[in-house]
């Protein structure tokens, strides 16, 4: 099997979705002629035509709202919001419409909308373009929040999401687009209800998602050289959270470090830590630790940006502290 990039995996998924179901269409800024800000939809306009690959004006509220309307009307829209940073302009549509219409209509209306967006920092695009807000979205009942970290998930989560009756938000870490990986065997559509153990270990659980999965794996490799066996749990789905896999891991290792690129205060890592303490307190052999971003606007200079974000070395240090070796 040949290696493909995460970007290619997204494109494969989009193509498969468009091929399988004529009601599926892609809509967003620069997805057509330009081929997508991250080149995920490159070539799709030629293949599927302007009816199904639609460029939109620079108005997130408008085209996310249009996507909701299309979904209500029986279509299966895939809306691409360029980055999470701009999704704030569409937050009213997302929170007040997409997430609530089933409830407000007494179950009469479904919003089978899929929204994809890039998220995260690490590419020197400064404070306004480096947010990690998927944890905010995971706060909202009524939607599903996915964070594919592998090429298999980048391709397959989209396909499964399109079968959901309610809105699904897919957060693609911008740093991952150029990462290469091998597609796993099996059907293209993948489960979107379970967390995945990416590496097994008995000494400590590294709980993370999205772009930080690779940092956690790098930390685990480093720790293995010292004889510390870290388990890496890729949450994959932030809502509804697969707490069972998390607890099973903690019950095995008795220690957990949660890695989240968001700011520490009010982060999704805080939610994970809280649930672990609620459900597995007596299995803990050390306090749950968090490795999050520093509480500053993400800096532009590379050395400062690196210092502000979770890094493998910070994860290793956190593990050392939990093991009393710090």
């Amino acid at each position: 099997m040949t290696k493909i990039t995460y970007r290619e995996a997204v494109r494969i998924g989009l193509r498969e979705a468009l091929q399988r179901n004529p009601r599926v269409f892609l809509m967003g800024e620069d997805v057509g002629k330009y081929g997508g800000t991250y080149a995920c939809s490159k070539g799709l306009l030629d293949e599927f035509g302007p009816e199904r690959i639609r460029d939109t004006p620079l108005s997130e509220s408008t085209f996310v709202g249009a996507g909701i309307g299309a979904a209500l009307g029986g279509m299966r829209p895939i809306v691409e919001v360029m980055t999470v940073n701009f999704s704030l302009l569409a937050l009213d549509q997302i929170l007040n419409n997409a997430a609530t219409l089933r409830h407000m209509s007494g179950g009469q209306f479904s919003v089978p909308l899929v929204v994809r967006m890039a998220t995260g920092a690490g590419r020197q695009v400064a404070a306004q373009h480096s947010h990690s807000l998927e944890g905010w979205y995971a706060h909202i009942p009524g939607i599903t929040v996915l964070t594919p970290a592998t090429v298999t998930d980048a391709r397959g989560m989209l396909l499964t999401a399109l079968h959901e009756p309610d809105p699904v938000f897919i957060f693609e870490h911008a740093y991952l687009y150029s990462i290469e990986g091998e597609l796993e065997e099996g059907p293209p559509a993948v489960d979107i209800s379970r967390a995945a153990v990416r590496r097994t270990g008995k000494d400590v659980s590294l709980m993370t998602f999205g772009g930080s999965v690779w940092k956690a794996l790098a930390a685990a490799t480093q720790l293995a050289q010292e004889g510390i066996e870290a388990e890496v749990v890729d949450l994959r789905v932030l809502r509804p959270l697969d707490i069972g896999t998390i607890l099973a891991s903690v019950q095995k290792t008795h220690r957990a470090v949660v890695i989240d690129e968001a700011w520490r205060t009010g982060s999704f890592a805080a939610e994970i830590a809280a649930q672990i303490m609620e459900e597995a307190f007596y299995d803990l052999d050390a306090p749950v630790a968090r490795v999050c971003s520093e509480e500053v606007p993400i800096p532009y200079p590379k050395h400062l940006e690196d210092a502000a974000l979770p890094q493998p070395e910070k994860i290793v240090r956190a593990v050392h502290r939990l093991l009393g070796r710090g």
Partner: peptide, 22 residues
Amino acid sequence: PAARKLAAERGIDPKGLQGTGP
């Protein structure tokens, strides 16, 4: 918490033990 629970299960008084954790 896990150590406290295990100590109780095994009937060990943890007072006086030298801790090696954080």
